[in-house]
Design a protein around this nucleic acid. Sequence first.
DNA 1: GCTATTGTACTCGGATACTCCATGTCCGAGTGCGCACGG
DNA 2: CCGTGCGCACTCGGACATGGAGTATCCGAGTACAATAGC
Lengths: 155, 155
Amino acid sequence: MSGGVEWGLHCCVVLSGSGEPVPAAKLAEFHDVSPSYLAKQLQLLSRAGLVRSTQGQSGGYGLTRPPAEITVLDVVEAIDGSRPAFRCTEVRRRGPLAAPPEKCLTPCSIARVMDAADRAWRESLRAVTIADLAGEVGRTSGPETLARARAWLQT
Amino acid sequence: MSGGVEWGLHCCVVLSGSGEPVPAAKLAEFHDVSPSYLAKQLQLLSRAGLVRSTQGQSGGYGLTRPPAEITVLDVVEAIDGSRPAFRCTEVRRRGPLAAPPEKCLTPCSIARVMDAADRAWRESLRAVTIADLAGEVGRTSGPETLARARAWLQT
DNA sequence: GCTATTGTACTCGGATACTCCATGTCCGAGTGCGCACGG
DNA sequence: CCGTGCGCACTCGGACATGGAGTATCCGAGTACAATAGC
C-alpha cells in the first residue's frame, strides 16, 4: 500500500471541523513531510471529491462532507486506487489442458476466495469514518489535542 | 499483491493428492508460465515449509502436509511475505506539535484501523484450504478435471 | 467617502526526474537413477 | 546371476539483469485579497 495513504488520513483528521481552508504547505509543515509529495496526495483526494480546494490568498483545502460521512475506505481508494490487489489472469484457460470457455462461466475459485477477502478488508475500512478517528484521537491524546492542532493550522 | 501468488496457489491445487514429486518445469508447462520465475515462487514455498523438494532424476516438488491443512493464507504469506501492507510511520510524533512519548503508549488509531482490516483479510484467507479449492474445481469443472491434470503431470 | 481597477502575492494543478522493488532470467551445486563391469 | 562402482542426466538453489510503479520535485496557470487611483 502506498505510504501516502497515511498522510492523507492524518490530513483528513486535522481538517475535520476546520472551517477555514488550510494550505497544503501548512499541512506538510504540521506533519513534517515533503510538501511537494503531500500536494500530490491532496490532489488525489480532490479528484475523488473528498476535499475541495480554493485558490488565492487564504485558500487551501477543506473537507467537502461532514467527517462522519467520509470513511477510511474512501481515502484509501482515492489515493491507492479502487482496483483489487489480486487480479485473476485466467491460468485455467492456458496450457495443454486448458479449460474450454463454456466451463469458465463462473469466476475461478481462487479469484472468488481472493475477492471475498478483499471485500472483508474493504468492509472493515468502510466501517470507520474520519469522525471516528478524530474522536479516538481526543480519547487517547486528550480532548484539547485536536483543538490545538487546528489553532496552529490557522496561524 | 505479487502475481506469483496466483501461480503458487494453482501449483498447490494440482499438487494436492499427487503422490509422486512433480518437477518445476512440468508445472510451468502445464500452466503455460515462465519456468524460471515459477521456480522462484516454488523456492519460496519450499522455504516456508509448504512443499518439499527432492532432487535428482524423478525428483520435483510435493506438498509436505495434507491439502486440508494448508490454508490459502499460508501460500500468500509464503510468497508475498507476512508483513502487513500498512506500516505506521508515527506521524503523530513529528512536526511542531509532536505528541510526547508518554502519550504514545497505545498504537496510533489509524494504525489500529488498518491492522483490524488486515486481520479481517487474513482471517478470510485462513478459512479456505487447498483441499477446499480442489473440491471447488471438481464441482465447477467436473470431477475428472483434477485427475486428468495429475495424470498429465506424471507423464 | 465609495467604487472600480490594477497589481501582487499566494494558492493549486499537472508535467517532470529519480529510486527501489517486483519481475524475469541464467548458470552452478547437488543427487538419485541407470548402466557397465567384475566377481 | 548378483553386487558394486561409476557416469550422467536431471533436479533444485541462489546470484544476476531489467522494467515499471511509487517517490519526490519543480515550475506554470489561476485567483482572491489589498492597495490605489478616480469619481
